[in-house]
């Protein structure tokens, strides 16, 4: 058991913030435990994320290379990182919580008899790891009391990317053994959803609707409010799953990330999958019947009440204000 291994993901220019946040979490853990920090990424030594200096302290970086890793597959990544972890014997493995890490890291952890503590939002002395429960209504503090490596994935936006520190990074190649028949899945090229035409990212005002709206017929209530405000209509995932609002208007981890001047959340409880898509908004207003709904934790203004009364009243008030 030696150090802390942060596994980064090279996503292409400007899209590596999640990995930097995982590094930031790794650095906090290093401070608490006195352990050294190492990093690894799939790619050769020229992989951009290894060359970028943002927040990178002196450490060792492993460039994990193999022809079978050219395209992501769970089988390929499981084998590669199982072997790297056996070689380095880190006490902690830290990854960004992404669709990729949640796909392969639990399998790697199982091979070590371990469980991934997923989607952590905080690290406290002990160390204990904080993550959300019950769709953000509670926080849970987890501890890893046993022997063997502790696997952690880091929630997007939960850790501040810190500024660059001086020093150099030694890049070492790591070539895992991946037999030709080990990779069972045949992945195709990623493609975009065909109807992805609405760019909510540049909207100044957004009115977003969640489960509280109860049925498709009631969407018009919220649409009227949006129209009166000159706002785009958006929705949380369940509303789009039901087809009540088109999928391309979904805000959240599986939809768009937005940061308008005004984000008005109607009947949205505020599960973390939604919050990661909108908490960067300048002003957040929440209307919800449940005073304990997690959406109020990020709201600037809140109205606890029946949306079927509040929304029409608000539409009238906005119209009355001459907007």
């Amino acid at each position: 058991m030696s150090g802390i291994l942060v596994i980064q993901e090279e996503r292409g220019q400007g899209r590596n913030r999640f990995s930097y946040e995982a590094l930031a979490a790794g650095r906090i853990l290093a401070g608490l435990t006195g352990l050294s920090l190492e990093t690894a990424v799939v790619g050769d030594k020229n992989t951009p994320i290894l060359a970028e200096t943002s927040g990178v302290p002196p450490m060792t970086a492993y460039a994990v290379q193999h022809p079978q890793l050219k395209h992501y597959t769970s089988d390929g990544y499981v084998l590669a990182f199982e072997q790297l972890i056996r070689k380095l014997q880190p006490a902690f493995i830290v990854v960004p919580h992404s669709y990729q890490s949640r796909d392969y890291v639990p399998r790697v952890a199982t091979r070590f008899g371990q469980v991934l503590i997923s989607d952590i939002t905080g690290i406290e002395t002990g160390p204990t790891f904080v993550r959300q429960l019950f769709q953000g209504r509670m926080n849970g503090s987890y501890r890893h009391p046993g022997d063997g490596p502790c696997f952690l994935s880091v929630q997007a936006g939960a850790f501040q990317v810190d500024s660059a520190q001086g020093g150099t990074t030694t890049i070492l190649p790591f070539e895992p053994e991946i037999p030709a028949d080990a990779v069972r899945a045949r992945p195709g090229e990623p493609f975009r959803g065909s109807s992805e035409t609405v760019d909510l990212g540049s909207a100044q005002r957004i009115v977003s609707v969640g489960r509280g709206i109860k049925s498709a017929e009631n969407i018009s209530l919220v649409q009227e409010l949006a129209t009166s405000l000159g706002a785009e209509l958006a929705a949380s995932r369940p509303i789009c799953d039901n087809g009540w609002v088109p999928m391309e208007r979904q805000v959240g981890s599986s939809g768009q990330t937005v940061s308008p001047k005004l984000y008005l959340a109607v009947g949205i409880s505020g599960a973390i999958q939604h919050l990661v898509g909108m908490k960067g908004s300048q002003c957040i207003v929440a209307i919800n019947k449940d005073p304990d709904a997690p959406i109020f934790e990020v709201a600037d203004y809140g109205i606890v009440g029946d949306l079927f009364e509040v929304v029409p009243a608000l539409t009238e008030a906005v119209k009355g204000a001459g907007h």
Partner: peptide
């Protein structure tokens, strides 16, 4: 292998101004 030691209510990330009264 991992233990949920305790659960707590989340801390507020912002100070929210709650607006009360009737809907109007």
């Amino acid at each position: 292998v991992v233990v949920l030691e305790r659960i707590t209510l989340p801390k507020k990330q912002k100070s929210t101004q709650m607006l009360s009264g009737t809907a109007a």
